[in-house]
Design a protein around this nucleic acid. Structure first.
Lengths: 245, 245
DNA sequence: GATATTTGTTCGAATATCGCACAAATGGGG
DNA sequence: CCCCATTTGTGCGATATTCGAACAAATATC
């Protein structure tokens, strides 16, 4: 049923940046013939999904009917698992999503590629927040006082000789994390393990989870790793924001 | 372009209650021939919008791209969310902003304080306009003939024994709402729930949305509630007008 | 277990779509 | 200011698509 697919492409042609589209623009973005795009847009307008002022089309709130039903029944793990599987396959490394529970991070989804950690991580597993990349991303999203309270109020063993354990030093790292939008950890939780994490933000702007990649420690400088892995991570991040209200 | 409209009807056939549909069920709900519904569903599955296990179809998170793009595109949620958060914190009650879509209101932003309603409301949720405070504020902003047309043209079940359902009585309430600049509802949508709403007006003077506070029903007289909650609501209203367009 | 009912699928007739070609509008340069 | 170049919007015939009745498979009923 070609017409349906074409119409959905046209709807997806609208985005946060492109909220008003002419027929030709919509055709361009959707990759359709202008005549086809025109028919789709007129149909959408006829069905109340779009407004037409004679020149530009705009989507109406009615399009929100299309997804919200199943949205209610869609918890975090269901949303992120497919994203995680695709990401893990693309970059060939293990990826995980976790949320913050007190001073610990809890894994809610995981796509394992190869074992780099001594312990097996699975949904439900927990690690302390202070020495993990996802934990630092999640702590960085809190109010500084709250983050400091959590850090100071729980034991912070030096799991390796590289582990940062002082609250002041950790708070400085959180500030950097907040500024950069990601956290990188080099063998602070376990020798031989590095990890890069970014926050996952819902459509209202709240950080609800963290996404990371685990790597075996290598000679590569952190910069090179971030350069290679940050783009796909950030792509998943933006996809997530579109999917998760 | 009939095929597109049919396909959108099929997508809308899915809801929070009906998350898995067979071909015949989808055809029934969407009001289409079974063969037509089948083609739509297979097309949706082919495009990644639905999953098919041989018996039942399920929508995938991909359909959320269809609506969320425009939700994020609407500057409205971005503008009101911080105002809502602050207001909710100040008065200690749940607040929401909604817009009118046909005979229904659609929640575009929400700051929940405590649950007073039986159903969970979130961005994208819908309620009928005739029996909600925000709905009455939004209907009151229309031309009377248009409001009457919407009221008379859609079912108006008495959701509680206090629900006003007669078009004439509702039109009188709309006139009052227009005169007072707010709407107060006492357990007309659900027993135990009261709500106070004001219109949100853009800089050009057009009513673009409604803002409300939800309250648990108490012995307090409406006057006392309005006296306590109207000032902060009106403050947000004027802030909004300065910020929006 | 046999019948009745519902559900899924197929296939020709009929209809709507595709995309080219044309017209209208826009914009830039002389 | 006008003209030409370019872009955008729209009508129309050839063609591929959809529609819905009829058939087959599966499920429910007695």
């Amino acid at each position: 049923m070609g017409g349906l697919m074409k119409g959905l492409k046209v709807i997806e042609a609208f985005s946060a940046e492109r909220t008003r589209l002419s027929i030709a623009e919509a055709a361009e973005v959707a990759g359709l013939d202008r005549a086809t795009a025109r028919r789709c847009l007129l149909t959408l307008a006829d069905g109340g999904y779009a407004d037409y002022d004679g020149k530009f089309f705009t989507l109406t709130p009615r399009v929100l009917r299309l997804g919200v039903g199943c949205l209610a029944a869609m918890p975090l793990p269901r949303v992120v698992q497919p994203l995680l599987d695709a990401l893990s396959q693309e970059i060939g490394e293990s990826t995980s999503v976790s949320i913050l529970d007190g001073s610990e991070i809890v894994y809610v989804a995981r796509a394992a590629q190869r074992r780099v950690m001594s312990i097996a991580l699975m949904p439900g597993s927990r690690l302390p927040a202070y020495c993990t990349s996802m934990g630092r991303v999640l702590l960085a999203a809190l109010e500084p006082e709250e983050a400091l309270g959590i850090l100071a109020g729980h034991p912070r063993p030096a799991r390796t000789d590289r582990t940062v354990t002082e609250p002041d030093a950790l708070m400085a790292i959180l500030a950097q994390t907040r500024a950069h939008g990601f956290a990188f950890i080099d063998q602070e939780v376990e020798i031989g393990l590095r990890s890069l994490a970014v926050p996952l933000v819902n459509a209202r702007g709240a950080t609800v989870a963290a996404l990371n990649v685990g790597l075996a420690a290598s000679g590569d400088p952190p910069n090179a790793i971030a350069e290679r892995l940050l783009p796909p991570l950030l792509k998943v991040k933006s996809d997530f924001t579109r999917l998760y209200l």
